[in-house]
Design a protein around this nucleic acid. Sequence first.
DNA 1: CGAATCGTTGACGTAAGTCAACTTCAGTGG
DNA 2: CCACTGAAGTTGACTTACGTCAACGATTCG
Lengths: 241, 241
Amino acid sequence: MVSPRAPSAEIIIHCFDSRVDLSAEERHYLQRMVKSPKVHSAGSEIIASGTPLDNPLFLLSGWAFAAVNLSDGRRQIIDFHLPGDILGLSTRANSKSYECWIALTTLVTANARAFLSFLQPEADVHYPGLARIARIVECEREMRHVRHIVRLGSQLAPARMASLILDLARRIERCGLMNEGAFELPITQEFLGNALGMSTVHVNRTLQQLRHGGLIRLKNGTLEVLNRTGLERAAEDEVSA
Amino acid sequence: MVSPRAPSAEIIIHCFDSRVDLSAEERHYLQRMVKSPKVHSAGSEIIASGTPLDNPLFLLSGWAFAAVNLSDGRRQIIDFHLPGDILGLSTRANSKSYECWIALTTLVTANARAFLSFLQPEADVHYPGLARIARIVECEREMRHVRHIVRLGSQLAPARMASLILDLARRIERCGLMNEGAFELPITQEFLGNALGMSTVHVNRTLQQLRHGGLIRLKNGTLEVLNRTGLERAAEDEVSA
DNA sequence: CGAATCGTTGACGTAAGTCAACTTCAGTGG
DNA sequence: CCACTGAAGTTGACTTACGTCAACGATTCG
C-alpha cells in the first residue's frame, strides 16, 4: 500500500465543474468529503458483486473497471472508470450488485456516500449542483452502456477498438489528463479483450492494424491518437470502409 | 389503426404494484394520467433519435424497442419494451436522445410526462411511490443493459438467444401476459438478429437448435418455454431475480 | 540470474456471416 | 375460386472474422 498523497478533491471538483455550476459551499462540501482517502492496490476488488451498493466511492486517482464475472471464470468488463468518476453509485442502494468493481492500477478512493441520498426521491437537497451531478453521472454511464452495446452487437474488431479508444480519450481530456494527444492507458490487452468481447490475440492484431493505419501509437502503456478523424472514421463504420 | 379499447391504467397499476406500494391516491393519479391514449401502428417511430426526451410514454399495450441507427443503415436494438413499461424516460430530458423508440406491433401509449419531474433533484414529491417507481424503472433498464452487454460480449449464439428469451419471459410473467408457460413473441427473426448481433440466418439456426433441444416451442409468434431449467442452463444464467 | 507478466507472431479450427434458392402463409384482387 | 404478391421463415454451399493453441520476444523485478 502506497501512502496517499495529501488528500485532494481537486480532481473531483474539476470534473464536476465542467458539467454543472458548483456553489462555493458545494466545493467546500466536496473538500470535506474527501478527507479520508483510501488506497487500493492494482487488481484488488473494490466492490464485490453480490454486496449492497450502499457505499459509493470517488475515484481520486488511478483506473478501475466494472465487470460481471461469469460462472465459467470468464469476465465481461462493462465499463472503465477514470479519476473523477464515482464507483458503485446506484439508486438501488439496498439491492445486491450484479457487477463488481476492480482496480486496474493502484488507486485512491474517498467515500461518496452522501451522493446516494441525492438519488433518493425524498432527498432533502441542500446541494442542488451536487444532486444534479449525481444524476448526470448515472446518465453518462447509461450512454456509455448503450454505446458499448452498439460496439459489441454491431461492430467488427477494429471499429470496436477505435470506438473504445475514442471514448476513453474524450473522458481523459475532460478530466485533464490528456497530454498533447497522448495519455496513459493502463489496460492490458487481456483486459481490452474482456471489455470488447474478443481474445487477447485478436486484440493484439487489431491494435497492430490501427497502428499500421497510422491512427494510433501505443507503447509502454502510453496511447497517442495520431489521426483523430481517421480513428473516428474507423470507429463509426468500419464495415463500409 | 385499431380503435383503442377503453383507456385503462390497469396494466400500469398492476406492473407498478408488484414493485412498490401505491397509495389509493397514487392509483387514482395514474388513472387520471392515462385518460388520452394514443395508437401507433406497427413499425412507426414513436420517439425519434436526436429529439429531446421530454415526453415519456406509458406503454399500455403492444411491444416496442429502443434502438440505435447506424450510419450504414443497420440498426442495433438496445432493449425491448412490454406493456407496463415507460418509453423515453430519462433524467436528461433536455439533452438529445441517442436512441430511438419504434413500435414492434400496433400499440397504445399514454403521456407519462409527470414522471420526468420525479427524476429531477428538486422534485417536490407528493407521490413517493410513483417517484420511487420512476427510479426503479431506470434501474431495471440499467440492469437489462448490463445483461445485454454480457450477452453480446461473452456468449455464443444459443446462450444469447436463451438468455434474451428468459429475460422476456420473466417480464411477461410480471405483467401478467404469461399463459401457461406460453406468450406472444411478436419479434421477427430479423429483429431478434438486430438485438443479438447476429444475422437472420443464424437466428433461425439458433432457434432450431433450442427447439430440437426441447427447450422451447415457437410457432406463429407464440413462444412456449418447455424446459425452463434447461433454458437457464443454456443461457449460462445464474441471475434468476 | 530465473520467474513473472505482457506482448507478438504463425498455423489451424470454428462460429457465424453471406448469398441464394425455396418454402410457407396471409392478404389482395381478378 | 385461384393466381399473385410480399413478408417471414428455412435450408444448403461457401466465405470470413475471430478463437485457440503454442511458441517465442520483451520487460520488469525480487
